[in-house]
């Protein structure tokens, strides 16, 4: 009974626990289940970060062919994570601020915080600084889809707003209305 880690076609290194069939079963024992949940959380966040995935939905466990197949299914041992189990894991993640339900007031889809909004704020500010765009007005679109791909490419709007509002609280960013929507102006670090 030796479990080995496994590298997926996308190059992600799955942990050895992913090859253990009980890992896919929701354990009735709360202590056991907490370990299972913890490992799943870590696996999901790591994979999300690896693939730059921001969302996970219960549909991903229900149907095949999504971005999450490599993690939620293990064809080698013929196991899959069931939606009920995934739902349990997601609720635990939301509880621990590792994800939020997005959109709100439902539990089938979450926005994953493989970086916390605070961390995203720092990343954003650093990016603006390094690309020399301080004090100039950027539209949200320019941040989400910059001409040169950045760490922020594809970041969901809600997460971006959260990061900007965190920056705004420390006076490093200001939301400005521009002709075609909203823009944001960044200021230098701890100036204010």
């Amino acid at each position: 009974m030796t479990l080995a880690s496994f590298t997926t076609p996308s190059g992600f290194l799955l942990p050895s626990i992913h090859s253990a069939p009980p890992f896919f079963t929701q354990q009735p024992n709360p202590n056991t289940q907490s370990i299972v949940t913890e490992n799943w959380t870590r696996l999901i966040l790591t994979y999300a970060r690896y693939r730059r995935l921001f969302f996970i939905k219960l549909e991903d466990a229900e149907t095949k062919g999504g971005d999450w197949d490599e993690v939620l299914r293990n064809e080698r041992i013929n196991r899959q994570l069931f939606p009920s189990h995934l739902s349990h894991i997601l609720s635990q993640m939301v509880e621990r601020n590792q994800a939020v339900y997005e959109p709100q007031k439902q539990t089938r889809s979450v926005l994953l915080y493989w970086r916390l909004p605070e961390e995203w704020a720092e990343v954003l500010h650093e990016w603006v600084t390094t690309t020399g765009q301080l004090n100039s007005i950027l539209t949200f679109y320019e941040i989400i889809e910059p001409p040169i791909e950045s760490v922020l490419s594809g970041i969901p709007m809600t997460l971006l707003r959260k990061a900007i509002s965190i920056l705004g609280r420390t006076g490093r960013a200001q939301i400005i209305s521009v002709a075609d929507g909203e823009g944001v102006r960044f200021f230098a670090g701890t100036g204010k």
Binding site: L3, S5, L13, L14, I17, P22, V36, S84
Partner: peptide, 28 residues
């Protein structure tokens, strides 16, 4: 549909493989 205590499903029992598990997957 996977329930926790599924009725007719066959249950296989494992030694608790989680207790002493240390992460050996992808890290950043």
């Amino acid at each position: 549909e996977g329930g926790v205590f599924g009725g007719g499903k066959e249950v296989r029992w494992w030694r608790n493989v989680f207790v002493e598990y240390a992460w050996d997957g992808q890290t950043f």
